[in-house]
């Protein structure tokens, strides 16, 4: 059994719209004298909240090692297919040769990126982070394709909890020095 709600008929004044118009004008007038919320952008910058997802960047560990090993999981998981990695082998003369694999090139097309953060979530090496950069500018399409060098420049260094590869290297050295195999 549906309940019928009586709709109150409009009074004459309401039918003229005028009281409502006056009420509306009052509200807008009050608003005009309230403090402004505008942020004077280039001079003032918004505070970046915790967990903000800005431009994806590649990071180094505190020892300066480039963390990405080009496992291509981010490339796989990226919904808009913005990431493109050219895998490569780390040369013998490099200090991180024990990591064996690193990206020859790492491209993120910022015109495609949707800042979903899935690359950060999937990264097994904690090498890609969406940090606090939100301003992406350029005048050509090519400029929006960020390459490895730029991504590392933007990413900088972040603290590392594991030092997985350093531990591995130390273990190898111990083994070579006659320790446990």
């Amino acid at each position: 059994m549906s309940k019928v709600v009586e709709r109150k008929p409009l009074t004459f004044l309401e039918k003229t719209y005028l009281p409502q118009i006056v009420g509306g004008l009052k509200i807008t007038l009050q608003n005009a004298f309230r403090p402004k919320v505008t942020l004077q952008y280039p001079e003032e910058r918004p505070p970046i909240p915790e967990g903000y997802r800005g431009v994806p960047t590649l990071v180094r560990d505190p020892n300066g090692r480039e963390k990405c090993v080009s496992c291509q999981l981010c490339e796989f998981v990226c919904p808009p297919k913005a990431i493109r990695i050219t895998p490569g082998e780390i040369p013998e003369e490099s200090e991180s040769v024990h990591v064996e694999k690193g990206p020859e090139d790492f491209e993120i097309n910022m015109l495609r990126c949707i800042y979903c953060g899935m690359c950060q979530e999937v990264c097994p090496e904690e090498a890609i982070f969406l940090q606090d950069i939100y301003s992406v500018v350029g005048t050509t399409r090519e400029e929006f394709v960020y390459h490895k060098q730029k991504l590392y420049e933007l990413g900088g260094t972040l603290p590392d909890e594991h030092y997985k590869w350093d531990k591995k290297k130390a273990a190898t050295e111990r083994a070579a020095a006659g320790g446990h195999h």
Binding site: S70, C71, Q72, E75, F76, P87, G88, E89, E100, K101
Partner: peptide
Amino acid sequence: FRFKMRVWF
């Protein structure tokens, strides 16, 4: 083929 491409691609 070493380090050329992940097989799932």
